[in-house]
């Protein structure tokens, strides 16, 4: 990707190896009033698919201060339905307007037969699904004219048909489609607990050059009479065990831009900024090791 001169209305174009926060509508005013000391911001792409109005107006004003990442939650990239070209066109338009440093989507599907779950659903990890994902990611990158990152999801079930570990599936996908990886450390922890695999082994299986972004968030524990499931709810602080795994991840991968995600039961902005500073402290430590 060649660097192009930034237009005056847009802020910095590249994302630093620091912590950023997810920007939600509830915090627009607070962010503009006193731009918080975080390295970058990420938004859900679909929240800016409208033709005009406040969301785009706020994003434009906020973009003047921060590098931006666009994170998609609705492309349904793993679906066997045709890709939604209108959705892709909206995303492309948004990319042109805001020049994000990173654009990401999920290793998941969310619709079939034209019906949308509006949720991130697990794929079976089979050769067929891998071929399918490779083709779809390539198609998306062709339309957008740029690389995207694919994020590992939290999952609550595994298919009997799955024959490839998730980490191998992702690495193979990145190698064949030429996409990067957005590694969600919370999701690794959640899925590892839900399915009984070793989160550390997951990290060790990922080549460091593939990882462009890290996500951190809070999960919720759902207890049932026959066991428990961790649910990726993004409604509370990062858990200590996830911080520990993040520590390991940064030790392995070096300093990677890290996002604090918080999407429901939003606290005041300062709480997110504190979480980001905690991630920054770990990133600094990694810098010290590397030095």
């Amino acid at each position: 990707m060649t660097a192009k001169p930034a237009l005056s209305r847009l802020g910095p174009s590249s994302i630093p190896a620091r912590a950023g926060i997810g920007l939600r509508a509830e915090h627009y005013a607070a962010v503009l009033e006193t731009p918080p000391p975080v390295g970058w911001l990420e938004v859900h792409s679909e929240n800016y698919f409208g033709a005009g109005g406040k969301p785009l107006d706020y994003l434009e004003r906020i973009r003047a201060h921060y590098p931006l990442s666009l994170h998609g939650v609705g492309l349904s990239i793993g679906s066997t339905d045709p890709l939604d070209q209108r959705h892709l066109a909206s995303l492309k338009h948004l990319i042109r307007r805001f020049e994000p440093a990173l654009v990401s989507e999920h290793l998941s599907w969310s619709s079939v037969g034209g019906r949308y779950f509006n949720d991130l659903l697990p794929l079976p990890y089979t050769e067929e699904a891998l071929d399918h994902m490779v083709g779809r990611v390539a198609q998306v990158q062709d339309v957008l004219g740029r690389q995207i990152l694919i994020e590992n999801p939290s999952s609550y079930l595994q298919y009997v048909e799955s024959a490839i570990p998730e980490w191998e599936f992702l690495v193979e996908l990145a190698a064949r489609a030429g996409c990067g990886m957005l590694l969600d450390v919370n999701n690794i922890y959640v899925s590892a607990r839900n399915h009984g695999f070793d989160a550390g082994a997951y990290l060790r299986a990922i080549p460091r050059h593939l990882v462009r972004e890290i996500h951190l968030a809070g999960f919720t524990v759902n207890r049932f009479d026959d066991g428990e499931l961790l649910i990726d709810t993004h409604n509370r602080p990062v858990w200590p065990a996830v911080w520990a795994l993040y520590h390991q991840a940064m030790h392995r991968f070096g300093r990677i831009p890290t996002l604090i995600e918080w999407d429901s039961d939003l606290p005041e902005l300062a709480v997110l900024v504190d979480e980001a500073h905690r991630a920054d402290a770990i990133l600094e430590e990694c810098h010290a090791w590397a030095a």
Partner: peptide, 16 residues
């Protein structure tokens, strides 16, 4: 189609 490690497939589908 769902592995039943601990929790049943039905329970796991219920989450979705």
């Amino acid at each position: 189609h769902v592995r039943t490690a601990g929790l049943s497939g039905a329970r796991r589908l219920q989450v979705y």
